[in-house]
């Protein structure tokens, strides 16, 4: 890859070209998303109840202080959300990479297999939640039916903290691994074969070919897709909500549910805004890490 080489033949003609190309995207973003983003920062310094006739009041960092020091749920929610994000991303990476490589290696039936393996991502999240709830049910679920069939004990999947964590993780991994698979598959498919022919001539074995040549080439799209998956995971809502509603207790409550409930059930707009700002910063840190990783691999 020759990314470092300046691409200047168009630049000489028109210095404005990149900005022109960016303008439609940013125009939309500024109207629809940048404005709420700034508004949200502003809200996080206010005490404002959505339904209250009392006008909002500027309170400085009070919302943040309350959140970090006095909110008993925030710590639980952070623990679950971060744990859930790390575990699901790791599993999706491994399974996604494997399935993409296997699918790419298939000569016959590849198109059909790909379709089948990608199906879970097409199912609406609400339906995924409800469908898996039937699967995890203690008495009438397929999972326990299978466990009993092979001679194990039933597990209270959704009623105990640890099993509930894994039930949510597996349901989420089931739904969104195809996302990673698909992007890797697209990355693999757009590589040209000459590279591999060259490697083959050089006498590299399969393992070397993969780690030295293929992996660095598919890393940029992989990093982007994992980065976005991480962001989606941090604020996951539907599947935990339908499977456990955050239970038992608050042991499986993600940030997404906390924000929604603070905003639209408690009407505490300032605090909800503060939580989403915290989430924004976590997201930026995550993005920085992924950008670093993909740059590092490229230069090496």
């Amino acid at each position: 890859m020759k990314n470092s080489r300046p691409f200047n033949f168009l630049l000489l003609k028109k210095k404005l070209t990149p900005y022109l190309l960016l303008s439609p995207a940013f125009l939309l973003l500024i109207v629809i998303l940048v404005y709420p983003l700034i508004y949200n920062f502003y809200l996080s310094f206010l005490k404002w109840r959505l339904t209250s006739p009392v006008p909002s009041k500027f309170v400085g960092f009070e919302n943040y202080v309350n959140l970090f020091l006095y909110d008993p749920d925030f710590l639980d929610v952070s623990k679950f959300s971060l744990g859930f994000t790390i575990v699901t991303i790791f599993m999706e990476f491994i399974i996604g990479l494997f399935s993409a490589l296997l699918l790419y290696g298939l000569v016959r039936g590849r198109r059909l297999m790909t379709s089948f393996l990608l199906t879970p991502y097409m199912v609406a999240p609400i339906a995924v939640g409800l469908g898996w709830r039937l699967m995890w049910d203690r008495d009438l679920g397929l999972v326990n039916f299978f466990l009993v069939f092979i001679g194990l004990d039933k597990i209270n999947w959704l009623a105990e903290s640890m099993p509930a964590f894994w039930a949510i993780v597996i349901s989420e991994v089931w739904r969104s691994t195809p996302f990673v698979t698909m992007i890797l598959l697209a990355g693999l498919t757009s590589l040209s074969n000459e590279i591999f022919e060259a490697a083959h001539i050089d006498g590299a074995n399969r393992w070397q070919t993969f780690w030295k040549i293929t992996f660095p080439l598919i890393l940029p799209p992989l990093a982007v897709s994992l980065m976005f998956q991480t962001i989606f995971k941090l604020r996951v809502f539907d599947i935990p909500f339908i499977l456990t509603e955050g239970g038992p207790g608050t042991s499986t409550m993600p940030y997404g549910m906390l924000i929604h409930r603070t905003y639209f059930k408690y009407f505490d707009v300032g605090k909800a805004a503060a939580i989403s700002v915290v989430l924004l910063f976590i997201g930026i840190v995550v993005a920085m890490i992924y950008v670093k990783i993909s740059k590092m691999k490229q230069t090496s």
Binding site: D139, N156, W157, L158, A159, E245, G247, P248
Partner: peptide, 21 residues
């Protein structure tokens, strides 16, 4: 009571009665 009661919502406890459990 059901050992997985902490996961029971409207549907679980309604169908338990309707299914004779």
């Amino acid at each position: 009571a059901p050992p997985d009661m902490l996961a029971w919502g409207r549907d679980e406890y309604r169908t338990a009665m309707m299914q004779g459990r």
